[in-house]
C-alpha cells in the first residue's frame, strides 16, 4: 500500500489523450480518478492490469488509461473480460460498463459472469440514462423521471442492480458514489482484492441529459443530491472488516439506496478451477 506521493495516479493517464471528452460536471471522471488511485494504492504494475470497456460514456474511460485495455462491443465487456481472465489468469481484470451497457444490452452477460464467479472486478457506472446517444430511458431510470424517450415520465420500475447481482451469484457486491470519492477508492481496492466476481455499482451523474431533463441542476447540485438520498450502511471502511448481515439489519426507511459493501461471500473462483482441471487433465494424459 502506498500512502506518499498521492498525486502520482496521474502517471496512469494517457496524457496524449487528455482532456477527456466527458461533459462538464460528469461524474465519470471522478470515478476514473478513484479507480486510478485504487490501482496506485495496490501498487499493481501497469502491464498486469487489464481494463475492458463496452460502449457508452463510461466505456470511454478505457481510452484514457495507460494499462492493457480493450474497447469492445456494446454490452459485451464482460465476455471479453471473462475470456481474458481465463487465458491470462495472472492479470488483474477490470470491466467498466454503463447502466444501459451492462443492464440492458449486456444484461445476460452481467448475470452470467456473476454466476460463474470469474475473478473480474466490474464497475457499473449508473447515471440513470443513456448519455452518449442523447438521453434515452435506461433500465435504471427511476419511475416518473423524464428522459428523451419518456417525456411524460418513465412508467417502468428500475433495476436495483446490486440486488440483481447478489441474486445472480456475485461474491462481492458494493455500491459507491461519485460524490464520495475516498470511500469509492476504498471500495474499488476491496473489489480488486476480492477473489471472485466483484460487482460495484457506482452512482454517477449526467447533468447534460438526466439533470437537465429532470431539472436537477448541474454537476455540483447533482453530487450534493447523491449524498442526501443515499446512506452509508455497510461496515466502516477504516477497519476494512466486513460484518456479515450488517447491510440487512441496518436498512433505513427514508433513503432510496444504500452504499458501501452490501454482500460478500467466499465461493470457488472459475479461472482457478479451470486451470486446476487443465493441470489435472494434462497430468493424466498419454504423454
Amino acid at each position: 500500500m502506498n500512502t506518499a506521493a498521492r498525486a502520482d495516479y496521474r502517471r496512469y493517464l494517457r496524457l496524449d489523450m487528455m482532456p477527456h471528452i466527458l461533459c462538464p460536471g460528469c461524474g465519470h471522471g471522478i470515478v476514473l480518478q478513484a479507480m486510478l488511485r485504487a490501482i496506485w494504492r495496490l501498487g499493481l504494475p501497469q502491464d498486469q492490469v487489464a481494463v475492458v470497456g463496452g460502449i457508452g460514456c463510461s466505456s470511454r474511460m478505457v481510452g484514457y488509461v495507460d494499462f492493457c485495455t480493450l474497447h469492445t462491443t456494446h454490452g459485451r465487456a464482460l465476455p471479453f473480460a471473462t475470456g481474458l481472465k481465463l487465458a491470462r489468469p495472472e492479470l488483474t481484470v477490470l470491466a467498466i460498463v454503463g447502466d444501459g451497457d451492462g443492464l440492458a444490452i449486456g444484461g445476460n452477460h452481467l448475470i452470467h459472469a456473476a454466476r460463474r464467479n470469474i475473478d473480474v472486478t466490474c464497475l457499473l457506472l449508473n447515471n440513470a440514462i443513456y448519455g452518449m446517444t442523447g438521453g434515452q430511458v435506461a433500465p435504471t431510470t427511476p419511475t416518473e423521471m423524464v428522459s428523451a424517450t419518456t417525456p411524460g415520465g418513465a412508467l417502468e420500475p428500475s433495476f436495483d442492480s446490486c440486488k440483481l447481482l447478489e441474486a445472480a451469484g456475485a461474491s462481492f457486491v458494493a455500491r459507491g458514489l461519485s460524490s464520495a470519492p475516498i470511500d469509492l477508492e476504498a471500495l474499488i481496492v476491496q473489489g480488486i482484492q476480492h477473489q471472485g466476481f466483484s460487482f460495484l455499482e457506482v452512482l454517477s451523474d449526467c447533468p447534460t441529459y438526466y439533470g437537465r431533463y429532470n431539472r436537477l441542476g448541474e454537476g455540483p447540485e447533482m453530487l450534493q443530491a447523491q449524498r442526501r438520498h443515499v446512506d452509508w450502511v455497510a461496515a466502516p471502511l477504516a477497519d476494512k472488516a466486513f460484518v456479515p448481515g450488517f447491510a440487512d439489519t441496518a436498512a433505513v426507511a427514508d433513503v432510496a439506496l444504500q452504499y458501501g459493501v452490501l454482500h460478500r461471500e467466499t465461493r470457488p473462483e472459475l479461472s482457478e478451477q479451470v486451470h486446476r482441471l487443465i493441470a489435472a487433465s494434462v497430468g493424466e494424459g498419454p504423454t
Binding site: A5, A7, Q33, P181
Partner: peptide, 30 residues
C-alpha cells in the same frame, strides 16, 4: 477539489510530497 474534479485539472501538493517529488522525479516501477 482534487478528489471531486472529474477532469484531473487540480492537484493539491503537500510539503513532504513536494520534497519527495523533487528527490524521486523519475520514481517508477512497482
Amino acid at each position: 477539489c482534487e478528489l471531486l474534479c472529474p477532469d484531473f485539472a487540480i492537484v493539491v501538493h503537500d510539503a513532504e510530497e513536494r520534497a519527495a517529488d523533487l528527490t524521486a522525479a523519475n520514481h517508477s516501477g512497482s
